[in-house]
């Protein structure tokens, strides 16, 4: 069983102060992982650094055996490591279908554009209905669908999703979580950042608790502590 993603001792941030302080996480082929933890502790920064948008100050990132620590974002997408970022509004003036077609920009995705478009519309029929609408006119849930749909158009070999259900109604949350389940069962490995532990326990095989820019706890679903214990771990520490 190969190691798909390996993040080792990563330090990164936006200025003189590092947000990530020696974080290490990994994902093996065949599993999905979840990241949770209090706000402002570096989950988004971790995904942005993996995607090449934030430059690490030290540490390594390996994807599919290749060192991508200092690679530029397009190179990383071309390798199949794709992100649907947090609160993503994509391109407000662009139409939905146009955006999805454009997302098949990389060489790796170009040839599969029509297949993937059908797949995305199958997953999110609402995007097809809204195909001609400008993205800025979409609702919050629809924007989230577009963001995930665009990531799927990149033909991901590993898909990272940053709080895909943030701020959505329970009904929409259910709808998205179902779609995410389908993506996983289609064989796309996932890294999901979420506050909703219930949701994560359903979607992921392993969870990391992220605090102060480090993975302070790793939880295996197979021999997971019960739910109450995780909640205590989370809220107990976060509250402290």
């Amino acid at each position: 069983m190969g190691r798909l993603l390996d993040v080792r001792d990563l330090f990164a941030g936006y200025g003189p102060i590092d947000v990530l302080r020696g974080i290490s996480i990994h994902l093996d082929a065949g599993e999905n992982i979840g990241l949770f933890g209090p706000n402002g502790h570096g989950k988004t920064t971790l995904l942005q650094t993996i995607s090449g948008l934030v430059r690490p100050t030290s540490g390594t990132i390996t994807f599919n055996g290749a060192d991508i620590t200092t690679a530029q974002p397009p190179k990383i997408v071309e390798a199949g490591l794709v992100q649907s970022p947090q609160g993503n509004t994509m391109f407000g003036e662009m139409r939905v279908q146009e955006t999805l077609e454009l997302a098949a920009f990389s060489r790796r995705a170009r040839g599969k554009r029509n297949d993937n478009l059908r797949r995305v519309f199958g997953l999110f029929p609402r995007l097809q209905e809204r195909g001609n609408q400008r993205s800025k006119t979409l609702s919050g849930g629809e924007r989230q669908m577009l963001s995930i749909g665009a990531a799927l158009m990149c033909e991901p070999g590993l898909l990272m999703m940053d709080e895909p259900t943030l701020g959505l109604s329970p009904r929409l949350k259910e709808e998205l979580s179902e779609a995410i389940g389908k993506i996983a069962s289609d064989g796309v490995p996932l890294i999901v950042v979420e506050q909703d532990i219930e949701f994560l326990l359903r979607a992921a095989d392993r969870l990391y608790l992220i605090e102060h820019g480090e993975a302070v706890q790793e939880i295996d679903r197979a021999n997971a502590p019960d739910h109450a214990e995780i909640m205590e771990l989370y809220f107990g520490k976060a509250g402290a």
Partner: peptide, 12 residues
């Protein structure tokens, strides 16, 4: 319209 989003779908 959005440099980061563009980079994340593989645009240079």
């Amino acid at each position: 319209q959005n440099q980061d989003s563009a980079a994340l779908i593989g645009i240079n």
